[in-house]
């Protein structure tokens, strides 16, 4: 079982310091995410969901504990190596400010491929293909500010999966969306998960979304309160 784990954490801890006060955000999290799993992490705000995702994505460093991606420890990596790792192995979908305003939808989608050095034709072809799968290809040549919030998040999902990462991390991707749009987005992510065999982990506090996932990790006060398999 551990051989198929994409990501694994050991006693993960994170403490934020503001002046003299210390705020513990994660108090020892042990977690394994397996290939092709579609997992949600749920919990009230302040429970440590975002912190966990940032640590897993290499955007921040843990105070203690270790994260393994593809079996390799992340703590020894330099900032540049972490950036490289994010670029090739991890896809991100954020709450907001997901898209670069001066790039068109297709350019936004192809941006990660561009950073990877993939030639223009190739990356545009791949970006268009993904956009078509996510049914936003008609906006391909428009700028992001012309799109609705749901459409923008779909483009963000497209960008997250276009480079075939090992795992896609989504931090409250539906936070600013209405119920119907939120459910649509989760369904599309689910389809990507199945068709591209990509592991997904997303954070949410919206319980209506939880019956669409394989597994729910409930966080409370920086600890795993419950880890349940839904399907």
């Amino acid at each position: 079982m551990s051989s198929s784990a994409v990501m694994r954490t050991e006693k993960l801890q994170k403490v934020y310091r503001t002046g003299a006060t210390e705020t513990p955000a994660l108090r020892g999290v042990d977690l394994e995410l397996e290939e092709r799993e579609f997992t949600a992490t749920a919990g009230p705000s302040g429970s440590g969901k975002s912190t966990l995702l940032h640590l897993l994505g290499g955007l921040d460093r843990p105070t203690d504990g270790e994260i393994y991606l593809d079996g390799r420890a992340m703590s020894g990596l330099s900032k540049d190596e972490l950036a490289r790792l994010r670029l090739t192995r991890i896809g991100f979908v954020f709450q907001a400010y997901n898209l670069i305003p001066v790039l068109t939808v297709v350019e936004n989608t192809a941006f990660v491929l561009e950073l990877q050095g993939i030639p223009y034709r190739e990356r545009i072809r791949r970006a268009r293909a993904i956009l078509a799968e996510l049914r936003v290809d008609k906006y391909a040549d428009q700028f992001p500010n012309r799109l609705s919030g749901g459409e923008q998040q779909r483009v963000a999902v497209a960008r997250a999966v276009v480079s075939d990462p090992a795992i896609v991390l989504a931090d409250e991707p539906t936070a600013n969306l209405d119920t119907k749009t939120s459910l649509d987005l989760i369904d599309l992510m689910r389809r990507m998960n199945e068709e591209h065999e990509t592991t997904f982990l997303f954070a949410t506090h919206d319980t209506r979304l939880l019956d669409r996932v394989d597994r729910v990790i409930h966080l409370e006060d920086g600890r795993i309160a419950r880890d349940e398999r839904v399907r």
């Binding site: 540049d80 950036a83 490289r84 670029l87 090739t88 991100f92 400010y97 670069i100 941006f111 950073l115």
Partner: peptide
């Protein structure tokens, strides 16, 4: 700032 943060989060190298 936010946009540059996004670009860096996506894994762009600092040189870039």
């Amino acid at each position: 700032t936010r946009e540059l943060g996004l670009i860096l989060a996506l894994g762009a190298a600092r040189r870039r």
